[in-house]
Design a protein around this nucleic acid. Structure first.
Lengths: 329, 329
DNA sequence: TTGAAAGCGCTAACAA
DNA sequence: TTGTTAGCGCTTTCAA
């Protein structure tokens, strides 16, 4: 039932090389106090045997795992897929691997995820916070941590590296484009759980104000965590309130809106959303979208975490990336 | 620069409980040979302190990581995104976490990925083989392994659990539908590197034969690994050969085809593909697609690996799932 | 420049 | 029922 991997260990290398394990360790880690000659001999044997030091044995003393923990809040969301892709790639480049966990917009799951990841002694953590007021300081302890997409509770934000995008102006751009394309009664569907969702709602309001469009609270829908009601909301926006434009604050909500538009045969409704995928270019219903720099976010998240692993005392900074409006229609 | 996590260790628990570490270990792992009373006392202290056994120290002896390694061959492919999602979810349910690595259709990278994952002592491996004749037996050693999407080299296949779909009949269904919708000159773009791609090509041939359509070798394009030429191929299919239907054997190739169709303003070309996403429902250009049971594949892969972790000597089996044609247009 | 030996946190065989 | 102890594979003092 239980079985051992017949791994080559440092002992065998030592024996083969006719030296002590301490000497092998020195050769292995390029430590001083070893002659060039011995080092070469040992290294030759290491490559010959394909020996790889046991990461777990090493970890017991070193706490070095070359593992990065990534916690996203919604695995079905295009944005997170893209960012996680970028994280994986960038981490791989640096010789790190990533363990990804899904918090499902649930603070309790997020807490558990952090615990699991710390349990694996990840060298760093990259988190899309579910944005309740979790006590991240105590949760992550001294594990270098970077937040993205959503800021941790505002008062703590300054203590962690945080990567955000300009949600307000992105949403403003998108809604403005809707207006420019002729929409005058625009509804919004946004997520109430994330800072991102709230900010996008602000952008919506700004665009309306800018174009002197009346503000109608009935057109503002904030979906719950599970977005169960999103379909009803979309329905009301179209049927009850006769909107001629809808801004879906993320692509999961967009899907719901498109579904409803199709169902009700309303091809003339103008639609805008946050996030972008290559598929959007082939839609019947043109979709105005706001493209986030997902690759940059993922890469920078890894870079920041790596930097902080090296220098844990670095002052934390928050960066906001600008977004790009993609006009269609 | 280096810092220790002030983790609670088994020693402190032992001290606090006034027992030996062996006793703590027994309480921890529900081993026999401990009185109910002591066990409860120890467990109380464990919860009080929030103690978590060091997984690495444990691993050195146990080789138990609760980690599953997942190797996919193309992170941008919708199929792999969906399967990996299912793998993550199912693994989480069983208390396992997954490390995902991308081989990028590159056997060398796949080999390295296997090594990295074994280095982390993953309890099991789930692999979409790049399908060169890698010596998987020697690569994965005794790590319980499940293959999906592509079979390992045929002669070894019987030695590993393998999860495939019915590529031939899926492609046949899709191409038949193209024909039924009126296409009579149908080109195919498929990947040459995977067994899946080859099988889908067979399905294409079968459909043509079935409907007594002439077989024209000029309409069969097999893209290289990097799919660099795919765009040229699509161009030729449309411009040189005047196809009125195209079967793109995966969604990455579909993207290329759609791009070219749009560029050349050929909305009347009928298109079919393997894999399915929710976005397809909203395309201007209707896309016939073949839906794979991605969730089932991911879940079963995990289940099989878990089963094999428990019983390493289980006979290997290959399962083929059927696919579903989604008509559009 | 080298090796012996201690110890990282844990499990399990053995003794008590 | 409990504790003592060896040892997992490694790094790192400390002595030689």
């Amino acid at each position: 039932m239980d079985f051992q991997k017949p791994r080559v260990t440092i002992n065998e290398i030592a024996e083969l090389a006719g030296v002590s394990i301490a000497t092998v360790s020195r050769a292995l880690n390029n430590r001083p106090g070893i002659s060039q000659k011995t080092k070469e001999k040992v290294q030759r044997i290491i490559t010959q045997t394909g020996y790889q030091p046991n990461i777990f044995a090493r970890n017991i003393r070193e706490h070095q795992t070359k593992l990065i923990g990534l916690i996203i809040s919604d695995a079905s969301n295009e944005f997170f897929k893209q960012v996680s892709r970028a994280v994986q790639d960038q981490a791989a480049l640096a010789g790190y691997s990533v363990i990804m966990l899904n918090s499902d917009e649930n603070p309790a799951e997020e807490m558990q995820a952090i615990q699991i990841l710390r349990h694996y002694d990840v060298s760093g953590l990259i988190i899309a916070s579910t944005d309740t007021h979790l006590d991240y300081h105590q949760l992550v302890g001294d594990t270098p941590t970077v937040f993205f997409d959503r800021a941790p509770s505002p008062d703590k934000q300054s203590q962690f590296d945080t990567l955000l995008v300009n949600n307000v102006s992105g949403a403003e751009l998108a809604v403005s484009e809707l207006i420019r394309q002729g929409a005058s009664k625009i509804g919004i569907l946004s997520s109430g759980v994330s800072t991102a969702g709230k900010e996008r709602q602000q952008g919506y309001l700004k665009a309306l104000a800018e174009y002197h469009l009346p503000l109608d609270q009935n057109l503002i829908y904030t979906s719950d965590v599970k977005q169960i009601k999103a379909l009803d909301y979309a329905h009301e926006l179209l049927m009850t309130h006769h909107c001629d434009g809808i801004f879906a604050a993320d692509n999961t909500l967009l899907l719901v809106v498109l579904q409803e538009i199709k169902l009700l045969h309303r091809p003339n409704i103008k639609v805008a959303t946050f996030d972008n995928t290559a598929w959007f270019d082939y839609f019947k219903q043109p979709v105005i979208s706001v493209k986030q720099p997902t690759a940059t976010i993922g890469h920078q998240a890894v870079d920041l975490v790596l930097k902080r692993i090296k220098e844990p005392t670095l002052p934390a900074k928050t960066r906001r990336f600008s977004v790009q409006l993609i006009r269609r229609g």
